[in-house]
């Protein structure tokens, strides 16, 4: 088993993990970020398979444009909690645990 095969196996393992996490993560924001990561790893995989045209297109469209679209749509549907958070933030400075959560 040479180094290239080990690289392939690692790439495939991380792609499968990211594929799972981009659907079943807890928050939708994490799902989107993991999906963008999956697109970037997919571009590397297409390069490994000798499809350089597809790798360029995947890096630009699959990771770039799709990620931007998903984030813009997420921004439209998420509940806007800015008013609810602001008083919480002022209270949170007293407690160490709360600030850690907000970070």
């Amino acid at each position: 088993m040479n180094l290239v095969m080990i690289f392939d196996a690692l790439l495939i393992f991380s792609m499968l993990t990211l594929g799972w996490m981009s659907i079943f993560s807890l928050s939708l924001f994490r799902c989107i970020v993991f999906f963008v990561c999956l697109g970037l790893l997919a571009a590397i995989a297409w390069g490994q398979l000798g499809a350089f045209d597809v790798a360029i297109a995947e890096a630009a469209i699959g990771a770039g444009i799709t990620g931007a679209l998903l984030l813009a749509a997420w921004n439209r549907i998420r509940p806007h909690r800015t008013k609810a958070i602001e008083p919480n933030l002022t209270n949170a400075k007293t407690s160490q645990k709360d600030t850690r959560e907000h970070v």
């Binding site: 350089f52 045209d53 790798a55 360029i56 469209i61 444009i65």
Partner: peptide, 11 residues
């Protein structure tokens, strides 16, 4: 070479 309309448009 690798490249073309779709890649350029996406960029």
């Amino acid at each position: 070479q690798p490249g073309g309309a779709f890649q350029a448009g996406a960029l």
